[in-house]
Amino acid sequence: MNVILEKEYKHLLEQIRDPDRRSWIFLNAASIGDTAAVCAIAQAFLKQHGHSITIVVPPDHVAITQMYPNRFRRVHTAERSLVNMVANKYLDPVRFEIDVPIYPHPYVQGDCRLHELLNLCKYPGRGGMSQTDMIRHLLRLPWDAQFERPTVPAQWDAEAEQIARQIGLVKDESVILFPANNSPHPQFPDVFWETVAARLTQRGLKVFCNMRGGTYRPDTMPIAGTTPIDVQMHQALSLVNYAGRIVSSATGMQLLVLMGGRFKQMTVTMPISKTVEFRMNQRQYHSTAFMAQYIYPEFLPGVPFAEFSVPYDGTPQELKEIAIAIADDAFDHQSCVKRMGTNGRTFLEEQDIWLRQLMAPLPENT
């Protein structure tokens, strides 16, 4: 490191390091889901390595750290651009020590090729490596290190219930759509989301559309036939729990809600082309690389969850058909993705016993 870079780096470390006590330093400037995953593994990390943790997150992610009380000695906020600059200019992937920042994300750490192991899952029977296992690997944790579920303070639940009553969200008989995404996933034509909303309404459910966040959105927001709602970070788990159901694109918020496990049904829409593999950030991926059943399967046992492959480049009729299947909970539809095991059952069914050991039990009121 040259003299100028070393001076910049030392200045940044002075801001990030705990002034009173040495600690591990976790950096995260990525999605809500990435922050949630790192927070969820913090207890296992402390058990394995000792000491304490300082976590550096964007200001809008502080609420996630509050869902994991007593796991962090210090929560430091920094803009994403600053954290990414530190990661790209200064971090040595070989160093793993107290008071030296660690960015435990497989897309960033090391030679940035670790995440390509996800693509091995496209070969049936060959296996691969989940993203959660990659986090364990980067943090030098045992393969059976357990993730924690987020804890929602009682006052947040009370706040969400008050909001729900004000906007007419009917308990256990409502659906919140989360169509927007901060990752550059292809967007579905309006006809898809409009059909989902219309069909849910026909079923007698109240349908709401989250308007908060998401750089990449459908052309029309809110979705026609829905009531707009502004879901803040600390309200998401509580509002979805009150509504009962969530239909979402694959997002960090969706992952956080999934980890909480407080819902009657979660359905995720995966934008899968009929003709080409998915590309993001100048990298090419197989369709399995962003599906929960492949990247964090231990979060799914016992949870009412489904993933649907939706051709964003499909015809209006194809999109309507899948939209109706999603709204109707038609989990036997050909577009409902099921990761298969080796003995004729699904992967989740075959591997249920050991997968459950890798994630804390569901809350009792689920």
Score class of each variant (00 low, 15 high):
222 P>M: 02
223 I>Q: 03
223 I>V: 14
225 G>Y: 05
226 T>R: 03
227 T>A: 14
227 T>L: 03
228 P>V: 06
228 P>K: 06
228 P>M: 10
228 P>I: 06
229 I>M: 02
229 I>C: 05
231 V>R: 00
231 V>N: 01
231 V>F: 00
232 Q>S: 10
232 Q>L: 10
233 M>L: 08
234 H>D: 07
234 H>E: 06
235 Q>M: 10
236 A>S: 14
236 A>P: 00
237 L>G: 07
238 S>P: 12
239 L>T: 12
239 L>E: 05
240 V>Q: 13
241 N>Q: 15
241 N>I: 13
241 N>P: 00
243 A>F: 09
243 A>L: 09
244 G>A: 13
245 R>W: 05
245 R>H: 10
245 R>C: 04
248 S>P: 12
249 S>H: 03
250 A>Q: 00
253 M>W: 10
255 L>H: 03
257 V>C: 06
259 M>D: 15
259 M>Y: 10
260 G>R: 00
261 G>M: 01
262 R>S: 13
262 R>G: 04
265 Q>W: 01
266 M>N: 07
266 M>V: 04
267 T>V: 11
268 V>Y: 11
268 V>W: 05
269 T>N: 13
269 T>Y: 03
270 M>K: 01
270 M>D: 13
270 M>W: 02
272 I>M: 07
273 S>C: 15
273 S>D: 08
274 K>N: 07
274 K>P: 10
274 K>F: 06
274 K>H: 08
275 T>K: 07
276 V>F: 15
277 E>R: 14
277 E>V: 03
282 Q>N: 15
283 R>Y: 13
283 R>N: 05
283 R>M: 11
284 Q>P: 02
285 Y>E: 14
286 H>K: 08
286 H>Y: 04
287 S>W: 06
288 T>W: 08
288 T>H: 09
288 T>Q: 10
288 T>I: 11
289 A>M: 06
290 F>M: 04
291 M>D: 06
292 A>E: 05
293 Q>R: 15
293 Q>P: 04
294 Y>A: 09
294 Y>P: 06
295 I>E: 01
296 Y>A: 02
296 Y>V: 09
298 E>V: 06
299 F>L: 12
300 L>H: 01
300 L>I: 12
301 P>E: 05
302 G>V: 13
303 V>Q: 07
303 V>F: 00
305 F>A: 12
306 A>S: 09
307 E>P: 13
307 E>N: 04
307 E>H: 07
309 S>E: 12
309 S>R: 03
310 V>Q: 04
314 G>I: 01
316 P>T: 05
318 E>T: 08
319 L>H: 09
319 L>Y: 11
319 L>I: 02
321 E>N: 12
322 I>M: 08
323 A>C: 14
323 A>S: 07
